[in-house]
Design a protein around this nucleic acid. Structure first.
Lengths: 240, 240
DNA sequence: CGCTTTTTTGAAGATGGTCAATGGGTGTGG
DNA sequence: CCACACCCATTGACCATCTTCAAAAAAGCG
């Protein structure tokens, strides 16, 4: 847990030894969830923060109709409910996509650490700001791009982030999503999701099936998705 | 400036006298912008934070096609580029909607204040988290709602926030937006914007014209827009 | 007053949604 | 081991919503 958090924060922030030391003092418990389990529900008032250790989790709004709107997907090192630290009530839910293992860290401990080591707080704050940047990009993605570019962009983002966090192989990424969930993230009907996947496969840029994303041609995919990684604010990235 | 910021933060956070005192020590300059002026451009590395004192500003992505995607709108007390505090480079731009007056506060001063008074940092952090919640809602709004609900929801949000910040009259709000801009926020063609406005006018729920939003029937509008203000995390709100 | 910008309205067309039916895979229980 | 159920993926046909294009009217503005 401590290693995962430290590495994540160092993707974008400078931490000194005292900061690291403070991190290692954080208490936590590890918990495992199965696909589709809710970690947190809309309306909850969580007392712990979630840190993803393995697998993936997603955040979603539950609509009146029962339909979900997925807002973001998270992988190792992400803190998908960091907002719970300073906002009482959850305005969205968090669920496991495939099987996921997470660490639960008490809010009180974390906030105490921030008071002692402000830089630590700034690093996590930065993390939440990148989160917000990802949401903004999702607004643009779902609002201004056609279905093909939209899906390509999401795949680019997920793969890029996975590479930055060293969870993706050379050209593959485990992405435990159903077409339905992809549709609920990208604002597409499931039929369209399927047809768009076929198109992307045909272009030879990317292949998503059986929960595995395979990048066939990164440059082509990035171009299709109009992908510019600036908004992810990652310092250094392995070449793609 | 100090009064505006203090009042804003107190909408959701507890501040003690020492925090307030620290706020009054912040230096700043006041600047006025005309409609459509850019305060910050995509790619900038701002050294100052913006605090809106009067008027409205908007944040937007600039797309390859030249089209804009508006991401959010901000009014008195908002800090539309708080993210600049901890992220080097702007991934979006900020522009004035009508005429707007803002205070520019040096990042260095602010961060220094956060180190001395952690609670002050937490309050601004909370502000940025609410920002993120608004972005999430925008994802859902532009992705999962039909055009009428979508527009109604935006009007609800803007009016609700304006009331919380005491900038709206009983039932009116100055909203210096063109139909084009409304369309670029809501992912609608301008023709659709106009026709949807007419529909809303006809239902007797809301009337937007000449840069003024007039709430005719709040309950009806909130229902049309499926509006639930929980995500705004405002403590107490004047009755609507 | 003449210019630009914004709003309004109409009609045609495309993208993507809805609906419906089929097939494949997996797990369960008889 | 097979039958059944269930979930997920796939495909086709039709249709609705919204976009695009075009043009005119109205409203600011020097």
């Amino acid at each position: 847990m401590h290693r995962v958090l430290t590495r994540k924060l160092r993707e974008h922030s400078k931490l000194v030894d005292e900061d690291i030391e403070r991190i290692t003092k954080l208490s936590y418990v590890v918990r495992q969830y199965e696909a589709n389990d809710d970690l947190i529900r809309q309306g909850d008032r969580p007392k712990n923060a979630v840190l993803v250790l393995s697998g993936m989790v997603g955040r979603y709004h539950l609509l009146g109709s029962g339909r979900r709107q997925y807002l973001s997907f998270h992988m190792i090192g992400d803190m998908p409910d960091a907002q719970g630290l300073f906002l009482d009530q959850m305005d969205h839910a968090v669920c496991a996509l495939g099987r996921a293992i997470v660490a639960l860290v008490p809010h009180a401990d974390i906030v105490e650490a921030f008071k002692v080591r402000p830089q630590l707080g700034f690093a996590v704050w930065r993390e939440t700001l990148i989160d917000a940047a990802i949401f903004r990009e999702a607004i643009t993605n779902n609002s201004a791009r056609g279905v093909r570019a939209r899906m390509a962009h999401l795949f680019c983002e997920l793969f890029y982030r996975a590479r930055a966090s060293r969870v993706a192989d050379h050209d593959q990424l485990a992405l435990p999503l159903t077409l339905m969930q992809l549709g609920e993230a990208l604002a597409m009907a499931i039929a369209t999701v399927n047809r768009t996947l076929l198109q992307l496969r045909t272009t030879g840029s990317v292949d998503f099936r059986d929960g595995t994303l395979t990048i066939k041609n990164w440059d082509k995919l990035a171009k299709l998705g109009e992908f510019d990684p600036g908004y992810l604010h990652v310092k250094k990235v392995p070449t793609l």
